[in-house]
Design a protein around this nucleic acid. Structure first.
Length: 260
DNA sequence: ATTGTGGCCTGCCCGC
DNA sequence: TGCGGGCAGGCCACAA
């Protein structure tokens, strides 16, 4: 997906959709509606109502309705948000540039003529009503040092796999995990619980800093490591050949020289 | 319980 | 130019 920085951009864009009465809902793809978010329930909850807040936890966008349920939107790997024809993010690395109407999986039209559209070519995202947030860990953009340390404690899973676990820390995706570990100089293979207190603090500092930086830059694919995440790629810091491995089931690029 | 694997769905890119 | 295989920023159900 879009990782946390993209969803934060979507959230900001969604603020322009608040307090505008919804006149109709289009849900052409039943597969995209998760949990109890069937078309009928959605219409009952939304038509004639309006969104009153736009929040984000990890990679989930939360649009609360006035006196009604909260709409949760997941964007999968290729989902984008479009409000009044404006897209939240220009480039998603693995999303096509062209546009096909059938990719508009979910649309709310407003009485003023505008609209909010969830566009997702690969259909790995989804829309749900009152999403269960109890299984999400603290948001990666604001997690405290002690909460991050607690998420690592007692886990023998590889460090990167732990960071990708949304129930531990919410919002870290594959690209940001690689970027943060590269900046922090930590091997993705290290058992999560093996980090010293100093290393955990270092990880926390880089996690927070990197996410803020990528939100400002406008995307998780704009990190310093990203151009080298490929065969033949070299570490931008020390020039070493990057190693490709699989961690947590995900393609991982890292520097064997300075990530220890 | 935690951790690892496979699968979902679709589009694109590379090599033949 | 066309085709097949492999890959992809996420998530979930399932197995060990």
């Amino acid at each position: 997906m879009p990782e946390l920085p993209e969803v934060e951009r979507y959230r900001r864009l969604a603020e322009s959709a608040l307090f505008r009465p919804v006149s109709s809902i289009a849900t052409p793809d039943p597969w995209f509606l998760k949990g109890g978010a069937g078309g009928t329930a959605l219409r009952l909850a939304l038509v004639g109502n309006r969104f009153v807040s736009a929040d984000r936890i990890g990679k989930v966008l939360l649009l609360a309705t006035e006196g009604g349920p909260t709409l949760g939107i997941r964007f999968g790997m290729t989902g984008t948000l479009v409000v009044d024809g404006r897209v939240g993010v220009e480039d998603l690395r693995y999303a096509p540039r062209r546009h096909d109407r059938t990719w508009d999986r979910w649309t709310a039209r407003f009485a003023d003529g505008g609209s909010l559209v969830v566009r997702d070519p690969r259909r790995l995202g989804g829309v749900l009503l009152d999403p269960d947030l109890s299984r999400l860990g603290p948001d990666a953009a604001s997690v405290s040092p002690s909460a991050l340390a607690a998420a690592l404690r007692g886990s023998r899973a590889p460090l990167k796999a732990r960071l990708l676990d949304q129930s531990q820390v919410a919002g870290v995706g594959n690209l940001i995990a690689d970027e943060v570990l590269w900046r922090a100089g930590l091997s993705p293979h290290r058992p999560a619980a093996s980090l010293s207190a100093d290393e955990a603090r270092r990880l926390h500092r880089h996690l927070r800093r990197t996410i803020g930086y990528l939100i400002d830059r406008g995307g998780s694919h704009l990190g310093d490591l990203m151009d080298e995440r490929r065969g033949g790629g070299r570490c931008p810091r020390d020039g070493a050949a990057l190693v490709r491995s699989t961690v947590g089931g995900r393609t991982t690029w890292w520097c064997p020289v300075h990530q220890l």
